[in-house]
Simulated scan of single mutants.
Amino acid sequence: MKHVQIAFCPIILALTVGVYAQQLSSPNDQAFVAKVSQGGRYEVEASKLAIQKAVAQDVKDIASSEVHDHELVNAELKRISIAKHVSIAPDLNAEFQGKLAQLKALNGSSFDAAYMSEMATIHDKDEKLFAQEANDGGSVDFKNFAAATDRIVKRHIGALHGLDH
């Protein structure tokens, strides 16, 4: 009988941990983290590249702001994700690696235009994701994070659309 009890202990422990983890994050939260963590990491990497390669000073200025703001946002997302037991992929996925490679291949005003276009596109998508999570997220922590970050994304959209590149 002791063998049967011992055999059930790992199963009960696994079920308990699984239920606990589910209470910490919803499927919506997990999908949100998967999407915005990739986008945030890409924005930082592309913007670091823009600081080096951009020709126009206003593009470099936007890139500096992007790096600063998104490194802070990414760190907060990571902090909440750890607390809620939501994993974040350690590297950029193939889609964003490809986009970064395309930017690396460009120079001069072609780089500036492509970078600004990329940032406008991703911020427009991000704004929708953050607004949706702020309204429909499962965890109060992720909802609050999304609402606060949505304001930052909207500010970035204003800056990006305010330039003629």
Rank of each mutant, 00 (worst) to 15 (best):
P10L: 13
E95D: 12
L103S: 03
K53E: 07
A131H: 10
A7G: 09
H123Y: 07
I122M: 05
H165S: 05
N135A: 13
A94L: 02
A159S: 07
I122D: 07
S47A: 13
S64N: 11
Q38G: 05
Q23D: 05
A50Y: 01
I51H: 02
K154Q: 15
V67M: 05
F130A: 04
A83T: 07
N93L: 01
Q30I: 14
A146T: 08
L49Q: 04
Q57C: 03
N144A: 06
K125L: 12
E127K: 15
A31S: 09
S87M: 08
A101Y: 09
D69M: 10
G39W: 01
Q23C: 06
L24E: 02
A63Y: 00
H123N: 15
K143E: 00
I12R: 15
D126L: 12
D69F: 05
G138A: 04
V36R: 03
L106G: 02
K128T: 13
S65R: 10
I152G: 04
Q102C: 04
G18Q: 12
G138F: 00
E45V: 04
R155I: 00
L160D: 04
H123P: 08
Y42V: 06
I12F: 15
V44N: 03
I12T: 09
A120C: 11
N144L: 06
N93P: 06
V140K: 15
G138N: 01
E118W: 06
E76I: 02
K154D: 12
T149E: 09
A56R: 14
D58K: 08
A34I: 09
K78P: 07
S110N: 11
T16F: 15
A159R: 00
F145C: 06
A89T: 05
I88T: 05
Q97T: 09
D61F: 00
H156C: 12
H161E: 10
L72H: 06
P10T: 15
E71V: 04
A105F: 02
R151F: 04
H68D: 09
D141V: 00
S110R: 14
V33E: 06
S25V: 02
D124F: 00
A131W: 03
Q38T: 09
D91Q: 14
S139W: 00
V19A: 14
K35I: 11
G108Y: 13
H68A: 13
L15W: 14
F111G: 07
Q30H: 11
K143N: 03
